[in-house]
Nucleic acid binder design. Structure first.
Lengths: 180, 180
DNA sequence: CGGATCGGTCAATGATACTGACCCAAACGG
DNA sequence: CCGTTTGGGTCAGTATCATTGACCGATCCG
């Protein structure tokens, strides 16, 4: 473990006047390795429940992501969905086309721009998305309850901070008004 | 850091009679969808930097995970590594064997049990792991600084809560004493 | 000695992603 | 009105990460 690099004056936003010692240490190497472990284990188990359901239906995580974001923003265009997922058109196609063929997702031409294909969930799609959601809800609820409301707020701030500009923009869009 | 379990009544979805304000709302549907989004975007961008480096070396995320956990626990057995990663022997082999052939990871027979292969990083392996670590450190440091120390503690508690039993055991082992 | 364990390897399969090229149809701009 | 741009779809080929099931050698242990 070489030079722990102490970064004392971290505090740019906040300025939460640390109660004594250990707060200045929070950027040390060990703390960051801890973060790596947390993210690896936590994310893996967060997705595990839904993955199990999906596996039984010849689908994968990518299908879930489409169901999730289309459900979150009914009427989203293919282009906007591509921007959120940050994958290629081809990768999306391999997942979106079957979802439409199997009646989970519905496509309607845009009203103002008829080149656009506006996406929405069918009842069947909404039901599957709901099932996946409920499963993950158990996991997240458990974690939230154990950790408490204050921890949840901290969790949100850190996760948001991990995002790059592109993701942050997409994220803020999603959490914001349902309209633009 | 054992589980502080402070679960105050869950509030069945809806019925949000916020007494002191926003604290009892934190289990509503929208809050959980927010968590899904945070985890998707946050985890993706957390890994993006390292993925970029790895891509230039004909390696992937799985190689990084091996370097990371072997670096974290030098002398770990193949079996224990399999337990941490929760993948199959075959999947590990496809990654571990090339890492050894290319001189990133070193194998030495166990002293007490000579069936075991104790794994450790070579200098070359440690250097690569370091490079990947530094890259992720930038991302995490940025997020930690923006969020502040209190948020970091909350982040940890929530991420740990997302883990299943198996992962939590492995995690506590990793964060605990280096010796067992 | 015999069974269990640790580690490695075979073959086949599937999910997710990539690149680059090419196409149609609709919109837009001079 | 025509040419270009944009939104969307699709072709073929490739890579990584994971799976299952079977089987083997070496070693440990009762």
């Amino acid at each position: 473990m070489p030079a722990p690099r102490q970064a004392q004056i971290a505090e740019s936003p906040e300025r939460s006047t640390p109660p004594a010692g250990r707060n200045l240490l929070f950027l040390r190497e060990e703390e960051l390795r801890l973060a790596q472990d947390l993210l690896f284990f936590g994310y893996r188990d967060f997705t595990a429940g839904a993955d199990e359901i999906l596996a039984g239906m010849a689908m994968g995580r990518a299908h879930h992501r489409v169901l999730h974001f289309v459900g979150r923003r009914p009427g989203i265009t293919v282009g906007d969905l591509l921007g959120i997922l940050a994958i290629t058109k081809q990768s999306l196609g391999r997942v979106l086309t079957p979802l439409m063929e199997d009646g989970y997702v519905l496509q309607t031409p845009g009203r103002t721009d008829r080149r656009q294909r506006l996406l929405a969930l069918t009842d069947k799609g909404a039901a599957l998305e709901r099932r996946l959601f409920e499963r993950q809800r158990e996991t997240v609820m458990q974690a939230y309850r154990e950790a408490g409301p204050a921890a949840v707020e901290g969790f949100r701030r850190v996760m948001r901070g991990l995002m790059g500009d592109q993701a942050r923009t997409a994220f803020d869009m999603l959490e914001g008004p349902p309209a633009p």
